[in-house]
Nucleic acid binder design. Structure first.
Lengths: 220, 220, 220, 220
DNA sequence: TATGAATGAGGCTTCATTCAT
DNA sequence: CATGAATGAAGCCTCATTCAT
């Protein structure tokens, strides 16, 4: 009962993939439709048969990527009850997809703000849904850690989404290990009790607190 | 015997601040020099008295921001021996500067790849130095956690640098609390022993491991 | 079985002709691409479909002109053995082309230094080839005149290339007469024996020789 | 009874010399006032004390150069009666000045058309005067050569003015020899009788005469 | 489906020149 | 005499997009 994939679909997806890698390399705004025409070996005007505007192209890439991410996550979480395990699935799904599709990952993480209007709204809706899902799992874990939930959620996403800035498959640990490390890193911190073993002295605030201006660009 | 700040310096810095906020808002490539002229109330050509190219302007913003970040960090770490406390200082410094200068933060985090040539090299050198400093502190902590050091380091930076994507001063916890939470989150996970209390079952890999293709965009 | 001249080729050549006349009139650097757009009735950006830069446009004009010049010269010299006659052909070819295409002539003669990089190299190569051809012919004439060959060659080119500074078809002698006159002028001088009839007294150097500083701008 | 040369005069002349060499190197329109400020080590605005506009600067250079050229020519021709010798003086004067002041020579020869309005008129008047002077000398020689006088005059100027396109002091014959060669070249041709020794066959026109279109760019 | 040719809008930058000091 | 700071005009070029075929 597979979907019917027409020649059109295949060509579109091939264009999306190629465009994603170009957007990843040069950035959305730096990349020109001409770059994409060159790389796809489709004529400039020919591309417009597959999308109506450059922005729609970006949307299609992001939406498609999110669709894949969502779908696999749904499948992975099916029947899982333990929130620890759920979180582990989330992290693994995220990282696996990112490492397996580094171009899409970068476009997703870095070109978040490049969409406008309805395109942006639709992608944002997907993002919010994922965020809430993760926040829900963290809540389920019911930790007595005193950490702000929103901060915790986005810290986790930050760890993962920042990946495109540093991860190099040929040099860094494999994705399985990465998922393991990040899960442990995050859960270890998140699950600790409030009176954790971290020496209290280390937690004292910096002196700047009394003089916050040292962190601020001089005002006019 | 303070530094000599000429009128020129002051005007330049004021331009840098204004430009940073515009770059933060629209993105470096989306922002036009005209936008900056309008906002600074300097004529288009008049701006070029203060920098030689748009890219140099971006460089000046990033370099100046990094300079401030570096300097305060040096001051904060002076005389500190305990690595726990050192890390706390790093996190606090980073977050305070970012929250106090959200425009610069975004430009620093998001426009990393917009520089080229020597400009990029010089900023990268600063980044590398900071990264190594943090990695050094993490090493000092001598954890028996089995976590890859590079992954841990960049996870921490990811948590912090992602801030510009979600943090809203009027809605989120104050920066002090944020620094506290992130420090605990990270240190709690990083300092745990290998046989931590996290249930083993949660750590089992996802089934996808055996079929990684579900995370991969269909190849051509 | 003539060459295939597409509509594209024809339009390009028409643009080259129009551009040549504008460059001739205002000078390459003074002419703006807008001027050319206006004259060709093609939009500013539309022009860039036919060339990649203003400099390439200049190159195309010069290269095309030199191509024509070379080709007809080849045809004219075919089978000609007598060096006197060869030289006459060179002069006639040069002057005819120049008078028939005064815009191209001026661009060729006056905008020699406006090309850079590879464009310049390629045009220079053509120039060198023509120069050597002429120098070869002069050598063939084996004159016993004691005149420096390089000086003689460039004197001939100077006579001809300077044309654009003074020649006015409506006021000056026709091109046939011009070719005749210049050929005789040059050959008459070039072929004379060393002990020509010019009174020796006239050849005595000017007194300035003993005090060359009268011809020199005062040094600092 | 020398002229009074104030400090102002000296600085102005030094600026003119420097500007001439910059104009010679990059071309008048390519050179910016900034280039001249840099080379003269005078501030941009400071230069405007010495001239009122870039065009006036060019005029001053050309006028000054022509003044020198004229003055020395006057002195050289004083008391000379023999037209052969007069011509020799003209050539020698021209070439000596040019070789001794290659920058000024190039500006004079190449930037003829860069002046407009009254500036152009004044320089043109000097040019016309010199041209007529030379044409007068040629007339005096009363040759029975059948060569158009205007063509002959400008051929001579062409030989000399083209110098800047090829002459290189370190590689070519010295200026004395050059003057000798060009004088003989020109006079030899100019003074010959109509029935000169050049084989008649060599003088036959090229076949193109009957089909002039081979020298013409295809008309639209 | 696909493309060659074309365009209006807009971007960055340079320039000659000015003016208050 | 000299300059630092500033500006309006203009230049080259690129871009996303369209339309007739």
């Amino acid at each position: 009962m597979t979907e019917l994939r027409t020649a059109y679909d295949e060509k579109l997806e091939s264009i999306l993939r190629t465009a994603a890698s170009i957007f990843a390399e040069k950035g959305y705004h730096q990349a020109s439709i001409r770059d994409i025409a060159r790389a796809t070996r489709v004529s400039l005007s020919g591309l417009y048969y597959y999308f109506n505007s450059k922005e729609e192209l970006l949307f299609l890439i992001q939406d498609h990527a999110f669709g894949t991410l969502d779908e696999t996550l749904d499948r992975l979480l099916e029947g899982v009850e333990d929130p620890h395990r759920k979180l582990r699935m989330v992290v693994e799904n995220h990282l696996r997809y990112f490492v397996g599709n580094m171009a899409e990952m970068k476009v997703l993480s870095h070109e978040a703000g490049s969409l406008t209007g309805e395109y942006r709204d639709r992608v944002n809706a997907r993002k919010r849904r994922l965020t809430e899902r993760v926040m829900g799992i963290l809540e389920e874990l019911q930790p007595d850690n005193g950490i702000d939930l929103r901060a915790a959620t986005f810290s986790l996403f930050g760890m993962m989404n920042w990946l495109y800035n540093w991860y190099r498959p040929d040099r860094d640990v494999a994705v399985e290990r990465l998922a393991e490390d990040m899960s442990r890193l995050f859960l270890g911190g998140f699950l600790q009790r409030d009176d954790s073993g971290v020496p209290a002295a280390a937690m004292e605030a910096a002196p700047g607190e009394q003089n916050p201006s040292i962190w601020r660009t001089q005002a006019e």
